[in-house]
Design a protein around this nucleic acid. Sequence first.
DNA 1: TAAAATGTAACTAAACTTGTTACAGTTATG
DNA 2: CATAACTGTAACAAGTTTAGTTACATTTTA
Lengths: 141, 141
Amino acid sequence: MAANSQFSMAVHVLTVLARHEGEKIKSEKIACSVNTNPVVIRRLLGQLAQAELVESQTGAAGGTQLARCPDQITLAEVYGAVSCGEVFALHGKPPDKNCPVGRNIEAVLCNLQKQIDRSVAETLSRHTLQGVLEVIEQERP
Amino acid sequence: MAANSQFSMAVHVLTVLARHEGEKIKSEKIACSVNTNPVVIRRLLGQLAQAELVESQTGAAGGTQLARCPDQITLAEVYGAVSCGEVFALHGKPPDKNCPVGRNIEAVLCNLQKQIDRSVAETLSRHTLQGVLEVIEQERP
DNA sequence: TAAAATGTAACTAAACTTGTTACAGTTATG
DNA sequence: CATAACTGTAACAAGTTTAGTTACATTTTA
């Protein structure tokens, strides 16, 4: 189970909201499409709300809707919102500082990590939620 | 603890080997620099050997050395060898196929995943072990 | 005031990574 | 040839993370 599919879920959730722009959607309805528990969805929506990608309303007749038009939400923002963390982890325990490699490798890896993060962000910023929605609508058999 | 630092460890291990080209290095010596257990290193070396990046010799006076020159080993190969898996995971449970989004979202995400993998590989292929080694040697105070 | 929704805390279960011990197999060397 | 010194690998424990679930306080509509 442990594999972090939050980004996948987030894109899914936002796409469902995008298909119903203007409407307020209940967490239970989204959960049904994602095939999970409504609480899992609400937790995820909390993160997306913090990133100001969605807006929720409590109370009866409450629900969630997009905070912006789908063509103004890039997948890079979504990725940043759910903060999947880094692509690879640095050393758990600190390396031996008596060894030249151990002393300097972390800086190298940290730099590498930043390059990869930028590269991933750049790739994702080329996609918008609108683009995803269009593929979905178009691919419907 | 659970965060997959195998790529970091692999780069570390290979850099240590690169610093001693031609010599056979014992897993215990590497483990000392990485600050972990020799068995962890040997497991990692097994993966690197399968990818033909290193060669090990058993028995007394055994050890491991690089299978190629450091300038002919890219970090993309290293990343591939330890197979950290994908940057994000697809859905755990399959989405609801009655919903248009649930029916088609996986294809979209899968495609996205491939794009990101390519992007990461492209970034990493710009770095060689030789390059890492030079930074390490140069940064020594 | 009651019903219906979100927000959130707490707990469980499953999966994964790392660390550790133990031991079989291999090889150099006295 | 016997021993010491390595690698390779299996098996297990411990810690962390994710997802799922239950429960309940809070908010809002009707």
